[in-house]
Amino acid sequence: MTIQRREFVAALGAAGIVSTAGCSSTDGGDGSASDGGGGNGTDGDDGASESVGVAGETLTLTTTTSTYDTGLLDEIHTGFEEMYGVTVDAVPQGTGAALETARNGDSDVVMVHARGLEDEFMRNGYGINRRDLMFNDFVIVGPESDPAGIRGSGSATEALTAIADAEATFVSRGDNSGTHTKELNLWEAAGTDPGGDWYQETGTGMGEALNIADQQGAYTLSDRGTFISQRSEVDLTILVQGPIEDGPEILANPYGVMAVNPGVHENANYDLAMAYIGWITSPSVQTAISEYQVNGEQLFFPEAVSEDPDFQQYVPEGWSSDSADE
């Protein structure tokens, strides 16, 4: 508190000084703005330690809300930070925003779940060295009463068509996230163009969307992980299962991780990004991912370690060296 008072006094005092500068006060103010920010930055920096080598560097990871909000990243990142003596700044943004941030060169590595957007990211040259990381699945959840009668449907597209036909309220994320992208793909596959009062784009995160659906007795598409972590707080139930519980394959939810191309963004911390990708796809961390539980349930299923080669994980889906102009 004394600091605040001192700053206040300093502010008033300095204000008087700057005011002598008269008409150039705007320039003077800008100068002191950056100076003051730097000076205070040293005071407020409590955690950063300087060291040689890779130690002390920061890896910026932009990722989806589902990996972050389930607590998985906090659980496993400590191991990486200790191994390399670095800091991981995990920025939870949603798939679309996470890729956009990386496209602007503001992150070093991305972990997202929308293969179509990832492929575009790679084709445009921004992302390299993609690996399949893990998967879970999407589920269609709704009220126990199930007004559209989709319970136990073996087909996600038929279920969505039934919801549209019944004009039962459906909550859409509407935020260009991986889940939203999947939802739009599902509507397209169902041959239905959703619209009307019953279709509500909320522009919110998964947790909020589940709450909104809960309040309105509506259906929504959720990743299984977020739904499990919130199940105890909402009156919603899984009506159409994903492939983990033998539901349709179209509801699979694979996560990929890839480095930002240092050829495009030379400031990207490529070394550390590749160290991270190597670490998170290693057998021990993949095991840690499979052992991570919320409410007694496994949320993510590791996919990176395999005896068999899967070349498609490294390239845009369907890419082949034989095909011409890629």
């Binding site: 206040f8 700057v18 705007t26 800008d30 205070n40």
Partner: peptide
Amino acid sequence: LYVSVTAVALSTLVSLPVAVV
């Protein structure tokens, strides 16, 4: 606190002389 107090202190540094002028 760190972010807002610093920002407001800097804003005051600029605002006050501007307001007086």
